[in-house]
């Protein structure tokens, strides 16, 4: 039995993430209990944790900081117990050391790197829509290039190449999947990326 917890700290549309995990478990006969929770005890009992995130980086970080005991519990889950952890969108960006969005704001610092604005270069901002995600090294989330749905104006500039699992091109090549052992982060929204997105979620929980 998988116990999958989607962390609820007041960020946007977490319902879609939950529904996508439920759908993929059902379709693949994976026994899973998928909950949305801000209770640290639920994190303790989880086999998989998903950290969503929408809106501004600093709002998301303070939402997380204002959930009592949450950051410590997530640290214990991902870095001490080394259980599977997935950050989505700003949830991915929070894995970085800091973000430059509206001033400089500290992140969780689990993966070395900084969140920087995408260079404009006459491109529409936010980077919104479907774009190709290309694996840069073999990883358990994505084996070959596929299209996923993006909505963001900032990107994760990784310090160590070994943490860059996949890249996407929008003016520059930026990291669209980061990874470090059991910790993953995706800049796009797998829960909004149709069958390709559901596949990636399946890979995460399998």
């Amino acid at each position: 039995m998988k116990n999958i917890t989607i962390v609820d700290y007041g960020s946007g549309n977490v319902l879609s993430a939950q529904k996508s995990f439920i759908k993929i478990s059902k379709d693949n006969n994976i026994q899973a209990n998928v909950i949305i929770s801000k209770n640290v005890n639920d994190i303790k009992n989880s086999t998989h944790v998903v950290l969503p995130g929408q809106g501004a980086f600093s709002t998301c970080m303070s939402g997380l900081q204002n959930t009592p005991g949450m950051i410590e519990e997530l640290y214990d889950f991902a870095l001490v117990k080394k259980k599977p952890f997935l950050g989505i969108c700003v949830g991915m960006q929070m894995l970085a050391e800091a973000s430059e969005e509206n001033g400089l704001h500290k992140g969780l610092g689990w993966i070395k790197g900084f969140i920087r604005p995408l260079p404009k270069k006459n491109l529409k901002m936010p980077h919104m829509g479907w774009n190709s995600v290309k694996p840069k090294q073999s990883n358990s989330l994505l084996s070959k290039a596929a299209d996923y749905y993006f909505v963001h104006s900032y990107y994760f500039e990784c310090q160590d190449r070994e943490n860059i699992l996949a890249e996407t091109q929008y003016g520059i090549n930026f990291t669209s999947i980061v990874g470090k052992e059991n910790i993953y982060g995706v800049q796009f929204h797998p829960e909004k990326s149709s069958s390709q997105g559901l596949n990636l979620i399946k890979n995460f929980i399998s």
Binding site: S16, K19, H189, K192
Partner: peptide, 11 residues
């Protein structure tokens, strides 16, 4: 919208 979000996984 709620019912749609249960079954449709695109924006």
């Amino acid at each position: 919208v709620r019912k749609t979000a249960n079954e449709v996984f695109i924006p």
